Lab assay of single mutants.
Amino acid sequence: PKCKGCFKAIVAGDQNVEYKGTVWHKDCFTCSNCKQVIGTGSFFPKGEDFYCVTCHETKF
């Protein structure tokens, strides 16, 4: 599969995040607002966007 963030291949051994059939490298899975890496931490999906806890609390 290819990462939705950088469009490069995800190979065995890469740390990745999967959500609803889409996959990202862990470092490519970032907050849509502040761009900080969410990685495998908590996040809030809103449509096609993903927000870290801090930005979600501030924005919504």
Rank of each mutant, 00 (worst) to 15 (best):
F7T: 10
K26L: 06
A9V: 02
T40K: 12
C55Q: 00
T30G: 12
Q15I: 09
N33W: 11
I38Q: 03
Q15E: 11
K26E: 10
K59S: 12
C6S: 01
E48Y: 02
F43D: 03
V53A: 08
C6V: 00
F43Q: 09
C55H: 03
C31F: 00
G41K: 11
V23S: 10
A12E: 05
E48A: 08
F7S: 12
E18T: 12
F44H: 14
E18N: 03
K4L: 14
G41F: 04
S42Q: 10
V53F: 10
K8I: 03
F43G: 08
C3E: 15
C6H: 00
T30S: 05
C3L: 07
V37K: 14
F29M: 11
Q36R: 08
G41V: 06
V17K: 06
K20A: 08
K8P: 00
C28V: 00
T58V: 05
I38E: 02
V11E: 09
I38F: 06
C34D: 00
G5W: 06
C34P: 00
P45H: 06
W24K: 03
D49L: 13
E48P: 06
G13Q: 09
G13D: 13
D27G: 11
V37R: 14
V17M: 14
V53L: 06
C34I: 00
E57L: 02
G13M: 12
T40W: 14
A9L: 03
T22L: 09
E18P: 15
C52L: 00
G39L: 05
C6Y: 00
K35W: 08
C6I: 00
G39C: 06
G5K: 08
Y51C: 10
G41P: 07
V37D: 04
E48K: 14
C52A: 01
K4H: 15
E18S: 09
C52G: 01
C28H: 05
C3H: 01
P45E: 05
T30Y: 13
F50Q: 08
C28F: 01
P1E: 15
K26A: 07
G39N: 08
F60I: 04
F60H: 03
D14M: 05
T30V: 13
G47V: 12
H25F: 01
K2L: 15
K4S: 14
K2V: 15
F43M: 03
E48G: 10
Q36K: 05
T30F: 05
P45W: 03
C28N: 01
G21R: 13
H25Y: 01
S32Y: 09
A12W: 05
D49A: 05
H56D: 05
F44Q: 14
K35N: 05
C31V: 00
T54I: 08
K20C: 12
V23D: 14
G5S: 06
T58N: 05
G39H: 08
C31S: 01
C52N: 02
I38T: 03
V11I: 06
G41N: 05
A9K: 04
A9F: 03
F50E: 03
C3Y: 08
K4V: 15
S32Q: 08
G47Y: 09
Y19V: 14
T22Q: 09
T54V: 10
T54S: 11
C52S: 01
D27P: 13
F44S: 13
K59D: 05
F43H: 04
E57R: 06
V37N: 06
G47R: 07
V11Y: 03
H25K: 02
G41T: 04
V53Y: 11
F43S: 14
T30Q: 06
D49K: 15
S42A: 11
N16A: 02
G41Y: 05
G21I: 07
K4W: 02
D27C: 06
I10Q: 08
F29G: 07
T58R: 11
D49S: 11
C34Y: 00
C28M: 00
Y51G: 03
S42Y: 00
G39D: 10
I10M: 10
H56W: 11
C6F: 00
F44I: 07
G39M: 06
T40P: 06
Q15K: 11
F29L: 13
S32I: 05
Q15T: 11
N33T: 08
F44G: 04
W24G: 01
G21H: 04
T30L: 12
K4I: 15
D27I: 13
V23P: 13
K59F: 06
G39P: 06
K59P: 11
N16E: 14
C31T: 00
F29W: 06
K20Y: 14
Q15P: 12
C34L: 00
T54R: 13
A9E: 10
K46T: 10
K8Q: 10
I38G: 01
W24E: 03
T40N: 02
K35H: 08
E18A: 02
I38H: 02
S42T: 14
F60L: 10
P1I: 15
G39I: 02
G39S: 11
K4E: 01
G13I: 11
T54A: 05
A12L: 11
T40M: 08
S42E: 15
G13L: 10
T40R: 08
V23E: 13
A12P: 07
K26Q: 11
T40G: 11
V11N: 04
C6G: 01
I10S: 07
G39W: 04
G5P: 01
F50R: 08
K35S: 10
T30R: 14
S42C: 01
K20W: 08
Y51A: 02
P45T: 06
N33D: 08
K20L: 05
C31E: 02
E57G: 05
H56E: 13
F7G: 08
V17Y: 03
C34Q: 01
T22Y: 07
I38K: 02
F50V: 07
K46H: 07
F44D: 10
H25G: 01
V11A: 14
V37W: 05
K46C: 06
V11M: 09
K26R: 09
T54N: 03
N33Q: 15
K46L: 12
H56F: 03
T58W: 04
I38S: 03
K26F: 03
G5L: 04
N16Y: 02
T58G: 13
Q36P: 02
C28I: 01
F60G: 12
C3Q: 06
C52T: 01
F7P: 10
V53E: 08
T54M: 08
N16C: 02
D27K: 13
I38W: 04
Q15G: 07
G41M: 08
K59A: 12
F29Y: 07
E48R: 12
G41I: 07
F7L: 09
I10D: 15
H25S: 01
G39V: 12
P45S: 05
H56T: 05
S32L: 07
D14Y: 12
K46F: 14
C31W: 01
S42N: 03
D49P: 03
H56V: 05
W24C: 02
V23H: 13
Q36V: 08
K35T: 09
G41H: 02
P1L: 15
C55I: 00
K26D: 12
G5R: 04
E48S: 07
H56L: 04
V17H: 10
S32C: 09
E48Q: 12
W24V: 05
D49T: 11
C55M: 00
K35V: 05
C28K: 01
N16I: 04
A12R: 08
K4G: 01
C31Q: 01
K20H: 08
F43W: 09
G5T: 03
K8S: 09
K20Q: 10
V53W: 07
F29P: 03
D27E: 08
H25Q: 03
C3K: 14
P45D: 04
G47W: 04
P1Y: 15
K35R: 13
Y19K: 09
F60C: 14
V11K: 07
T58K: 13
K4D: 07
P1K: 15
V37Y: 10
C55L: 00
D27F: 03
C55T: 01
A9H: 03
C55E: 02
T40I: 08
C34H: 07
D49H: 15
Q36H: 11
V37T: 08
V53R: 09
K59H: 10
Q15A: 06
F7A: 14
F50T: 08
T22R: 12
D49V: 09
H25E: 03
T40C: 03
D27S: 10
V37Q: 02
K59R: 12
K35D: 10
F44C: 09
